[in-house]
Amino acid sequence: MIAILDYGSGNLRSAERAFELAADKVIVTSDPRICIEADGLVVPGVGAFAACMEQFLNIGGREIIAARVANSSPIFGICVGMQIFFDSSSEKKMSKGLGILPGDISQIEAAILPHMGWNTVAAPAESKLFSGIADQSFYFVHSFAAKKRVSSAINSTSNYGEDFLAAVEKDFIVATQFHPEKSGAAGAKLISNWVKSL
C-alpha cells in the first residue's frame, strides 16, 4: 500500500492516479498511522517552501517522517516535497527544512524563471529510479533547487542556467525535483521502478 501525504499541498489527485498505475492500493491521507505503516510514503508539494513546510508541520509531518526514518521505511518526495527534506531554503525568507538530506535550497541562476517544462536528466548507471528511462525528459516547474550533491547517495542532475539536483536516491529516501506524475510515460516508468523496489 502506498500512502500519499495530504497536507494541503500538491496536485494530490494527479499523484494518486499516477501511482495507481503502478500500485495495487493508493491512499491519500494525513492519518499518521496509515502514513507510518504504508509500504511507501509519497510526499508531494507545490508552491512556496515556507508555506509548504508550515502546512507539513501542522499535520504532524515531522513525526511521521521521523517514525519512517527510524524504521528505514521508503519515502518519495516530489518537487517541494523533495526540498523540505534538506536543511533549509532561501525562498522568500530563510526557512528551516527537515534536515534529513544535507544542503540548502536556493534560487536557480537563470534569466527566465520558473524553470518550466520538459528537461533531460543525467542519471548514473547505478540509479534504480531511472532504470530504462535514463535518456527521457521529465516535467519541471520550479525556481529553487538543491545544488550540492548529497554524499553516499545516487545524485542525478539536470541543467537550466546551472546544474542542480534533479533527483536523489539515498538509502530508503528518494526524491525528485521534477513531477513524475506529470511526466507522461517516462514518469509512469519511474514511479513503477520505485513501487517495484518496495
Partner: peptide, 8 residues
C-alpha cells in the same frame, strides 16, 4: 541537457 520548447 536543454529545456525543450513546448508545443501546447
Amino acid at each position: 541537457m536543454t529545456l525543450a520548447k513546448r508545443i501546447i
